[in-house]
Simulated assay, not measured.
Amino acid sequence: MTSAVIDREPLPDTAPQDPPRAGRRRRRHDQPPRWQLFVPLGVYLLFTLVPFYWMLLFALRESGSDSLVPWPITFEHFEKVWNERSFDTYFFNSIQVGVATMVMTLLVALSGGYALARFRFRLRMPFMLALLCSQFIPGALLLVPLFEVFRELQMLNSLGSVIIAETVFQLPLSMILISGFIRNVPPSLEEAAWVDGCSRLRGFLAIVLPLLRPGLVAVGSFAFVHSWNHFLFALMFLSSQDKQTIPVGLNTLIGSDSVDLGALAAGGVVAALPVVIVFAFIQRWLITGFSAGAVKG
């Protein structure tokens, strides 16, 4: 018996082949060297972090010391500005102004942004253009007219005047941003809620509002930080010391003949710490919110 030998062609090798070395080398050369990325970032961090370190240095080291390291650490400057310079009052006044401005801005901007995003009406585009153009008007130009308005309303030397002024100046940009966030939500979701028996308001609260959470965090944090740091409105509309906010309180630490650098640095740390803590917790929401508002869905 003869056995037949069947010649089989070798199967093609389907294993992944490593790219040629020349291709890998070319691809590696196409990428910029790491130092071109880290050197500019290092220079940026140097110019950013050195002022903060300098502020902490003056706030934590003893008076009269010229050491570049805050050792031994002292908190006498913080005790001085908090107890003797009424920074506790300034701090809680700024909290009231910031939170109230944030809430009022979000409420009004939500309604206005929804109207701009969902309704088509005459003069809609000129209205949005006017909102954009209003951002080029500095608040200092309107200080005198606003002062006269609040004087007629008998609202001078009250936190309400600062809250209203801050809200009015935050509304145009906030309304434009929130309208962009709402446009990214498909209208079919609301229509499905209407079919199920929801009213427009209930559909907005149940369907659209939860999807706007990153955008609301972004707009609210922007309004809070702006009102927290704003100096002119509080200086112009508030006269008594128990109504002042932190920016005006920092200005009181600068005398005509001398400056207490330790107390001023401690006050700067007190003013910056809440903002840093807030942004540390909402960083993820903030980036997501601004990214969602920048791209039209």
Rank of each mutant, 00 (worst) to 15 (best):
R61Y: 02
R61F: 01
E62R: 13
S65T: 15
D66A: 12
S67T: 14
S67R: 13
V69S: 07
V69G: 04
P70G: 10
W71N: 08
W71Q: 09
P72I: 12
I73A: 11
I73M: 14
I73P: 00
I73H: 00
H77L: 01
H77N: 14
F78C: 05
E79W: 09
K80I: 01
V81H: 06
V81F: 07
W82A: 12
W82T: 07
N83G: 02
E84T: 12
S86Q: 13
D88E: 11
Y90T: 01
F91C: 10
F92V: 15
F92R: 09
F92S: 13
F92I: 14
S94E: 08
Q96F: 09
Q96E: 09
V97A: 11
G98L: 06
V99Y: 04
A100I: 11
A100E: 03
A100W: 09
T101R: 06
V103M: 09
M104P: 01
T105S: 08
L106E: 05
L106P: 00
L106T: 04
V108M: 12
V108F: 15
A109K: 01
A109I: 02
G112H: 03
G113M: 06
G113C: 10
G113W: 06
Y114T: 13
A115Q: 08
A115N: 07
A117E: 07
R118W: 03
F119S: 07
F119K: 12
F119N: 10
R120D: 15
R120K: 14
R120I: 02
R120H: 14
F121C: 08
F121D: 09
R122Q: 06
R122V: 13
L123E: 05
M125T: 14
M125D: 13
P126F: 07
P126Y: 12
P126N: 10
F127A: 14
A130Y: 04
A130N: 01
C133E: 08
C133G: 13
S134K: 03
Q135H: 03
Q135E: 12
Q135M: 15
F136L: 15
I137G: 05
I137T: 09
P138Q: 10
A140T: 14
L143R: 03
V144P: 00
V144C: 00
P145Q: 07
F147D: 03
E148N: 12
E148Y: 12
R151Y: 11
E152C: 01
E152V: 11
L153C: 07
Q154W: 09
Q154G: 10
Q154M: 05
M155K: 02
N157A: 08
N157F: 08
S158E: 14
L159E: 10
G160D: 10
S161N: 08
V162A: 00
A165K: 07
F169E: 04
F169L: 13
P172E: 11
P172F: 11
P172D: 09
L173T: 06
M175T: 15
I176H: 05
I176D: 08
L177I: 15
I178D: 00
S179K: 02
S179H: 04
S179M: 04
S179W: 06
G180E: 08
G180P: 05
G180H: 12
F181Q: 06
F181Y: 15
F181K: 00
I182G: 01
R183H: 08
V185G: 03
P187I: 13
L189K: 03
E191Q: 15
E191K: 10
A192D: 07
A192F: 04
A193V: 11
